[in-house]
Each structure stands twice: as C-alpha cells, then as structure tokens.
C-alpha cells in the first residue's frame, strides 16, 4: 500500500514539541484539529483529507501489527496501513486515538481515545495540481 507511518515514535511522546507550518510551536498533546488544517493550508502542496476507519483487524502479514482500513477523501479511496496498536491517529473533533490507548499511555504517556470504526482521522495527501 502506498502509505507510510512514522517508524520513529518519539514525536508522539507527551511533551514533544511540534512545529506547525505557521511556525508556531505546540506540545503534541495540545494539538487541535485546526492546527492540522491551518498547517496544510499554509504549506502549499499538501492537503488534509478525512480518512474514515472502516475496518480494524490483526495484520495477516505482520504479526503484532494492526491493519487499519480507511476510505480517504471525497473519492472514498481505499487505503490500508499496518501499524503497531499503540500508534496514535488524530481524529477530527476528538483528538488522539489509538487501537490500544493503554499501550499508547505506557509507551508515550499520551492520552488517547479508543480508535473505532467510523472515526474520521486526519491524513495528508499531495494536493492535485490541475
């Protein structure tokens, strides 16, 4: 699948400093939906897409990982990514969420909601140039 997830998790550690595209610095736990939206707007070439979780299951190919199935953007394109269960995703209007909030708390000290089917996550794509 042409999707990538960060392999170095340190930016999810509570207290990690995140630089928005506006130059503003925020802690990872303080980020809000609008921070991502505005950052994409001023970045140029990047677009925030709404990615709805449509299925969550254990990865068949990579034991220990979770396969997350998304429908992405207006075209409802199907994308699947394999991630560790503690990997946080930012859900619109809700904030950080993961398949295993307990593991996320243990590893990153980052408070998460349970990620569920129907959640709409923040993702980015390259903006289509006409």
């Amino acid at each position: 699948a042409p999707a990538s997830a960060p392999s170095n998790p340190s930016h999810f550690m509570k207290g990690a400093i995140i630089q928005l595209a506006t130059g503003e610095l925020k802690r990872v736990e303080d980020l809000q939906t609008q921070d991502f939206v505005r950052s994409a707007e001023v970045s140029g070439g990047l677009k925030i897409d709404s990615s709805m979780v449509v299925d969550i299951r254990a990865s068949q190919q990579k034991p220990g990982l979770v396969s997350l199935h998304f429908t992405v953007g207006e075209q409802q394109s199907k994308v699947t990514i394999d991630v560790p269960p503690e990997h946080p995703f930012f859900v619109f209007g809700q904030g950080w969420s993961s398949c295993s909030p307990e593991r996320t708390a243990q590893l990153y000290d980052l408070a998460c909601h349970p990620l569920q089917v129907g959640d709409v996550c923040v993702s980015i794509t390259l903006q289509q140039q006409p």
């Binding site: 595209a21 992405v72 199907k78």
Partner: peptide, 25 residues
C-alpha cells in the same frame, strides 16, 4: 535544576499518516 535546551522539534506533518489513494485516474 536542569533546563532542557536542546529539545527536538518535530514537523507537524510527521504526526499524521500520508494516505495516498491506491487508485488514480
């Protein structure tokens, strides 16, 4: 008191997945 001064700063886009559609026109 140790004041952390060399705190790494991560770009915002490293936090969200890059989900490229598998189907294109």
């Amino acid at each position: 008191n140790v004041e952390p001064r060399s705190v790494p700063v991560f770009p915002w886009h490293s936090l969200v997945p890059f989900l490229a559609p598998t189907q294109s026109d």
